[in-house]
Design a protein around this nucleic acid. Sequence first.
DNA 1: GCATTCTGTATTTTT
DNA 2: TACAGAATGC
Length: 691
Amino acid sequence: MTNHFSTVLNSQQYEAATTLEGPLLIIAGAGSGKTRVITHRISTLINSGIPLSSILAVTFTNKAAREMMGRIRLFNQRKKLNDLTVCTFHALGLKILIKFGDLLGFKRNFSIYDQTDKQSLIKELIRELNLESESTDTWQISALFSAIKTSLKSWNEDIQQYRALFNEYNTRLKLLNVVDFDDLIVLPVKLFDSFPDSLSYYQNKFQHIMVDEFQDTSSRQYELIKLLAVEHRSICVVGDDDQSIYSWRGASIENIAKFERDFPERLEIKLEQNYRSMRNILIAANSLIANNKNRKRKELWTKGGDGDHIQIFFPEDERQEADFIADHIHSLAIRQRIPLNQFGVLVRTNNLMRILEEAFRRENLPYRVSGGLSFFQRKEVKDIIAYLRVLANPDDNTNLLRIINTPRRGIGKKALESIIETAEKNSCSHFSAIALIAEKEQTAINEKMRESIGSFYNLINQYREKILSGRKMAPVLQSLVEIIEYRAFLFQEYQKSATAKLKYDYNVLGLIESLAYYENDPDNLEPGLFNYLNMISLANQEDSTEENDQHKINLMTIHASKGLEFEVVFIAAVEKDIIPHIRSQESGEMNIEEERRLFYVALTRAMSKLYLSAAATRKKHGKVIETEPSPFIAELPEELLRIQEKEVPVTPDQADRYFDDLKKLLPVKPRFDTYWPKSTVLANFLADLIG
DNA sequence: GCATTCTGTATTTTT
DNA sequence: TACAGAATGC
């Protein structure tokens, strides 16, 4: 098989895929066949007799991990690949904590807090510590804590006042038996520092390591991977400094330099041949990114043809823009028979997606969105998950507070106060306090309150027992949702927006379904509540539901498009203050380069057709704002651009004439005498057909 | 304790 | 526009 590679890989790719010893740095330009190289390399490792269990491949998203696994399976159909580890950094951190977390004082059933949980906890602590006088923007504080944990920031003068809160936050996490996202990376490093045996366990286990999207690893992630690799030094990292778009999350191009320093004996391979885009698109992308000073020199080239010009469209407003995109997709899909899943519509921010969705729905174009709020983060889904979390780990105060009166069960402000007070007095969790109240050990409380609290206590206990019994969990959850009358609660809560209610119903049932799917999956070796909750903490929508649908347009943020490619790409709202985003310009020069890289990533997703649009006005917070085109447009070579005229619909007279001509071509006389094409698309299609 | 109304704010990108 | 949190009334 190894020799077979040489015919499908170019010489650089071949060298990258077959160099199995020692550190390897692959600088892989956009569309240079990076994923192919990685999967080939893993297959080569496998075929050379290296045990699967000693191979670790780290990817950036779950989706990428799944795709990679799929491709490896294609190459190795005969083999069972269960022992192969292909996962994200966070999933790796989780695995490590599950195995050795007890050394750091975590119980087995720890749960993972996402941003929302984290912010609620911070809010709660601010209340407890009476810090309300300080700036209590939990959003900012949460970001600060992340920056501190990942060593992006250190305690300087102006943030000293949050130090106590930060310490309390961490103490509390441990008390609640909970970790946050940053902990998944930071704690394993800490573990390895304090317990060398755990480190050598993993150093011996993972003797061959690969890291994809290396330009987007954070310094802490790099630290983790370096610890693992430093002994056997068989580490291969693949990345492209021009596509580094996650510096706000701690990613740093510096890591490439660090890698060069830490592994001086490395071999470096550059992949510069692009197999994805037509030449015009590539030249435009090259000329844009050349404006960045801070980069490794590299120039993508292609053997492919020039292809079309890059089309630019300047609609009046965002509605016209959306219609333009929808019309064009429709028309290209029909005239050139391009399947809908070959269209990518990219935007800078999530809120730009809605108007496009509406246009697609108007034109009856099926679409799929990725990025944006994950299924598991929707409010009603989170509510039900909060129940599961409490069942799994009753000490999880944050989630307990979330569900204790949702749906309302008469445990209001007063009752909550006495619960929290009792908890403080006995220095125990809220749930234990509830137990004390329910079992009448805590006397000073009114009976009606005790009754409400008591029945909640019984509910949790009863269902905790049921769901941990080892029998199927989904029916238990189903019955829980029914017994708390969650459906009625949603109906009441959302009676104003009629569509919401259906949607919500769908989401809640979707969650139960997802649980059923999870526990009935034969490939799932260790089902169980804890594993399920961990899984969904790290997963997002695409990971759980619909797979690559053949007939859907892909609508997503530019960030979410990384690693993907489409025959036709539309980039919407290529406007000043959106690309580059206004908030990125607030702090410093470097950010404009990242925004440029982001636009570069967007451009290089396109294979043969690329459309940019910039509306003259755009509604923002209900107000119409005048906009300007993005300054990045001026960085593209002018001769490669075409300003797109609006498609003029044919007049009814013309349409009639076309239809008459068309009738003459038909062997049978149609039953209709006139035809009145209403949509531009149809009319133009008709015109096209007749010539 | 709960529902309704009013007010302010918008906070980019995601594991 | 859209959503959360506070304030008010039952």
